[in-house]
Each structure stands twice: as structure tokens, then as C-alpha cells.
Simulated scan of single mutants.
Amino acid sequence: MVKIAVVVGSTRPGRRSKQVADWVLTRAISRGGADFELLDLADFRLPLLDEPLPPSMGDYRHEHTRIWAETISGFDGFVFVTAEYNHSVPGALKNALDFLYAEWNNKAAGFVSYGSAGGVRAVENLRLIAGELQIADVRAQVALPFATDFENATTFTPSQVAEEALEPLLEQLISWSTALKTLRS
């Protein structure tokens, strides 16, 4: 069975991504088909990228990078839960992606985003980043506008549309993660 991380993509105080990631994780576990685990970037406390060599060389000098690499190596796929900050991804998520290279290769990803416009511009950016890291991103995504999926823009209250959009994302992600695992074997 493939192992998929639900990544909490913001470390900001008062973030909404943990609420959203918990929802994704609960729904994913209940549907089955893969082993799902929460991966909170805040737990890793990564500094701004401080490795002296490009990640593509795989020569990690710092312990925090080696721990991060070992963690990411253990997953076959990812659901990135991201806010949209200034028409893009949170800096902490971009930084976490930039730390590694080979550990991301030939794995699958799906995106759950939120913000005033549902976070869709953040996902546009993430798709570009994923391509460079050789992460295959699935087409289905979940976009959560503050107006429909958050009470008072703070408390996550998923709409029926959001509930229905999550299933195809998980279905595609499990299929792609399973297929790509054969490339890494």
C-alpha cells in the first residue's frame, strides 16, 4: 500500500491550513486505499535554505536537511494543503520544497488550497514547482474560498462542493502514487 503525506503548508500563527489538513486526513483515512499521515511543516522548523550545494547534488550538510530528506523519502505521494499568499504559495512551503530534489522525484501530488479566490493561484505556482522537482501533479484539486468554506474567514466549514471535490483528488493521487512507485523500485 502506498504512503501519502497530507502536508500542512503554512507555519504562520493563526493559520487555517491545519484545520483543512485535518479534514483532508480524516476523509482520506476513512476512504482508505493508502496509508495517510499528517506532515506539518511547523514541526520541522526548517531555516531558510542554508545548504551550500544545490539539492540536486544530494550532499546535505545539515542535520535538519537530512531529517527532512529522510522524512520525505518515506512517502509515495503528497496532498499539499496551501494557503494563497500574495498570489503564490507560503514561503515556508516553497522553502521546504526547495531543500530537496531526489526525494521528491517520481512521486505524485494533489493540491487543496484556500484563500479569497480559493487559493487557485497558489496551486498554479505549485504545479510549476512540482514539474521541476519531477513530482507528477494530478488534475483534480480542491479550492476553498473563504466566502463559502470558512465561517467568518477563520473557522473551516467545508461546503458540499468541497466534500465532493476531495474524492476525485484522492482517487487520482492514490492511482498515480501507486503507478509511480514502480519507477522508483
Rank of each mutant, 00 (worst) to 15 (best):
V81D: 07
V24W: 11
V142E: 01
T71W: 02
T178V: 09
A179M: 03
H64D: 04
E132R: 11
I4H: 04
T26K: 15
L170F: 00
T82P: 04
A165P: 13
L128V: 15
P52I: 02
V123A: 01
K181P: 15
K3E: 11
A5I: 05
N86E: 14
G119W: 05
G118V: 06
T82S: 12
A34C: 08
G91A: 13
G74C: 01
I72Y: 05
L93H: 05
K3L: 12
L48E: 15
V20C: 03
A34Y: 06
H87G: 00
L180R: 10
I72A: 04
L49G: 12
N86C: 10
Q19R: 12
F75K: 09
S116C: 09
A147V: 04
K107M: 04
L173I: 08
R121G: 07
A179P: 15
G131T: 08
L48N: 06
L97C: 07
I67K: 05
F156H: 06
A140R: 02
Q172C: 14
L180E: 08
P54I: 09
L183V: 01
S73G: 08
P145D: 01
V161N: 06
R12W: 04
S177R: 11
E164T: 11
L93V: 11
K181R: 15
E167Q: 10
Q134N: 10
Q19T: 12
G115C: 09
T82E: 09
L48H: 15
G115F: 09
G33Q: 12
S175C: 01
M57T: 11
V89N: 03
V6I: 15
E164Q: 07
G131V: 13
L144M: 11
F44P: 09
H87K: 11
E151G: 06
A136M: 02
A102Q: 05
D22V: 03
S185A: 01
F111H: 00
S177M: 05
V20T: 12
Q134E: 14
L169E: 15
V2T: 10
V24A: 00
V20Q: 02
V81K: 05
T157H: 01
P54V: 14
F156M: 08
I174A: 09
N86G: 12
S73L: 08
T155Q: 13
W68E: 04
A179R: 14
